[in-house]
Simulated assay, not measured.
Amino acid sequence: MKTYKTLHSFGSDEYIVEKSTFIGYAKPIKSEEEAVEFINEIKKKHKDATHNVWAYTVGETMNIQRYSDDGEPQGTAGIPTLEVIKKEDLRDVVVVVTRYFGGIKLGAGGLVRAYTKGAKVGIEAAQIIEKVKYKEVGITIDYNQIGKVQNEIMNMGYTIKDTLYTDKVQIIVYSREEDVQSLKSKMTDITSGTAELSESESFYLSEKDGQIIL
C-alpha cells in the first residue's frame, strides 16, 4: 500500500447536547492490543461516566473492525462511531466517546447524531494525515557544488533531512518513493555525473496537505 490515511497523534475534544457531555478521544494505533489498551485507559479515567462507547480499525484493508455500544441502545453508538472512522477512510485508529448523561433522553436518532459528532470532534483534534512511502536519498558532492545542489533540491520541493560535512558534503533528502529516480537523475545532471548517490529502504512519513509532518 503506497498511501493510507490515519491520525497524527492523540487528540480529544468535547461538546454538550441536552445537558449530556460527550468527550471524543482518538489515537493512531499499530495493533489490536494497543486499541484495547487505550480503550481500557479511557474507561479507567472515566469510570464514573454513563457510557464509554468505542470503535477501532486495524490493518491496511481494515480487516479488523470492532465496536461497542457500552449499554446504549443497539446501533445508536458503536456503529455510528465506527462509521465515522470508515467514512474518513482511516486505518489503524481507535476512537472512544465518553458520555455523561445530563438527564434528558436523546432518542435513537439523537444518540446516533451525538456519537457521530463525538467521534468527529475527537478525530479532528487528533488531526487526519496521510501516510506516504518515502526514501532517504544521500547526495555526496564537493564543497563547491553545495549552493547549486541545495537550491535545486529546494526548487524541486524536496525536504532536506540533514547535511553532513566531512571531506565532502552529504545532503540527505526525503523523497517520495515514486520521485527517487527523478531526483537522482537531476542530481547527476547538475553535477555532471560527479555526485555519489544512495537511497534507503522505503518507509512511511506523515503528510498534511502535501507537506511532511515530522
Score class of each variant (00 low, 15 high):
T188A: 09
H46I: 07
K131C: 06
V17K: 07
Y67R: 08
A35D: 05
M1Y: 13
Y25I: 00
T98E: 01
I190K: 07
I29L: 02
E124D: 15
G102S: 04
I129E: 06
E196W: 12
T98Q: 08
T61P: 06
E32P: 11
E32V: 09
T191N: 04
E37G: 00
T188Q: 12
S185Y: 14
K117E: 14
G157A: 01
A35P: 12
F38V: 04
D70H: 00
V132W: 09
E33K: 15
F203A: 09
A119D: 00
N52V: 04
K30D: 13
D89P: 05
T21L: 14
K30A: 13
M154L: 15
V137P: 08
V96Y: 03
V93L: 02
G11A: 09
H51F: 05
Y204S: 01
G71F: 03
Y134N: 02
K44F: 06
I153A: 06
I153D: 07
V96W: 05
E124V: 12
D48C: 03
Y115L: 04
K184C: 10
P73A: 06
V17F: 09
K184S: 04
S200T: 14
I104F: 00
T61C: 05
D162C: 09
A108S: 14
E207Q: 12
I85P: 01
K2L: 12
S185V: 13
I172M: 08
G157W: 12
N144H: 13
G122Q: 03
A26C: 01
V94Y: 01
Y165F: 15
K148A: 05
D179V: 04
I212D: 02
I123V: 11
I23T: 10
D209F: 12
Y25Q: 01
G210L: 07
E178Q: 13
